[in-house]
Design a binder for these strands. Structure first.
Lengths: 233, 233
DNA sequence: AGCTCATGTGAACGATCTTTACATGAGCCG
DNA sequence: CGGCTCATGTAAAGATCGTTCACATGAGCT
């Protein structure tokens, strides 16, 4: 790693070192603790050990900091999804399932990023670079849908990949947003969010004509082999 | 209507009349204009023509007002869904589609309610009456899913209604949250949110083994009869 | 060594949230 | 009708926050 000089400037720095980074980290901590509305600019400054005015050297205002976090979130999101997709290896279907799990995993493990990206009221379309980052993340889902659509059985009409991608995205976001995070808006579920989403997507794909094994859903619904739909309760 | 005396007290009241109501209305206006984060307690008071301290006679703090709005939102939501479902008349499928449209309609026409309910960070499970209202709203979807599940073709295994309900809900919320409102987080869509959701649900139901007419999706995807999947672009 | 510019500080303003003591008037009871 | 009481609203005040501006400081270049 590039320790030696980088670390000296980072830890102890001249004025502060990399305040920008420290502020982003502080904001992330605060958001994950108290939600995107509960984090204050002054708090982030305090947590970074600087005066309340210092952040204005790096962010025009509080919204720009939030937008920066959303931006970073989209980038990290894209990276996670890309890795999960792995260009469709070893096979399209299982890679696709991995993407779904990765989606939920990101929402759960990075709730601060996720809420900054989707629930903070940041106007995504007002910031071009933010918009672009969001597009790149969606492009992964879109690409996966494309490959999946190409796999449609010969007899079937090809579903439009864009529509598939939007459908999958809305399912994933719906599950993540309603049931994904441990804390807020939780509701007793008969199964894990991951299994819920997996079953949902599989049923959807079967509806498109893909030859999905029914046992996969059963396994997703619950490990209990009490019929193909899991426990009937 | 019960004018006469009610109205005198409502309009002109003694101190203010029904400040509580006025505050809720003011908050709704403010939220629909500036989002749930952008509304301030003082602003609501000002809009109601009272001092900034007056609201505290009716709400412990800002969060309680928000929770009250969410509560009311869930009640109104339940009413809208109940009306749309109409106990499954004239037939289960079309009533089900109506519920989906009603869901999106509510999210679009009452963005203030919707965001207070789902995106304001109000801890739903901390307030029992709020939780109950939310449950009652979800119960409509659940009941519809139940009826739908009972309609499953004889040869098919019966899907668990609860799972169906959760799936439908996550689709609806996903579409509403990502594409539903005119303003925030919009993205260019090849079709309307309503059509997107309708196609999604229909494909899902077909995946469950329901004999869904493919042309319905085509119509949903777009009116253009350019093949069963709408325009291939 | 000295200049310069990015970076951080301190003080200040207005707005907000919230509490506290005080005012007011509606409705009841005699 | 007169007075009591309590819900309802006000005024004032403290704490915090977002934001700005004049000023300080020191890193890096020449």
């Amino acid at each position: 790693m590039s320790w030696r000089k980088d670390e000296r400037r980072a830890e102890r720095g001249y004025h502060h070192g990399n305040l920008k980074e420290a502020l982003l980290q502080a904001a992330l901590n605060l958001i994950s603790q108290k939600g995107p509305a509960g984090f204050t600019f002054a708090d982030a400054a305090r947590m970074a050990g600087v005066s309340p005015a210092a952040p204005y050297r790096h962010f025009r205002d509080r919204d720009e900091l939030l937008a920066s976090i959303a931006q970073r979130g989209f980038e990290q999101f894209e990276s996670v999804l890309t890795q999960a997709w792995d260009d469709g290896r070893p096979d399209t279907i299982s890679a696709f399932e991995r993407v779904g799990k990765a989606y939920l995993g990101f929402a759960r493990e990075e709730p601060a990023f996720y809420s900054a990206m989707f629930e903070s009221g940041v106007p995504v379309d007002s910031n071009p670079t933010l918009m672009a980052a969001s597009e790149r993340a969606f492009a992964i889902i879109r690409a996966a849908a494309e490959r999946l659509a190409a796999l449609a059985p010969p007899g079937m009409p090809r579903p439009p990949a864009m529509m598939m991608a939007l459908h999958i995205w809305s399912m994933s976001h719906g599950v993540a947003s309603l049931f994904g995070r441990g804390d807020a808006a939780r509701r007793k579920l008969p199964m894990s969010p991951e299994d819920l989403l997996e079953a949902e997507v599989l049923i959807y794909l079967r509806g498109l004509g893909f030859p999905i094994d029914r046992r996969a859903e059963a396994a997703a619904a619950e490990e209990k082999p009490a019929g193909p739909w899991g426990r009937p309760k």
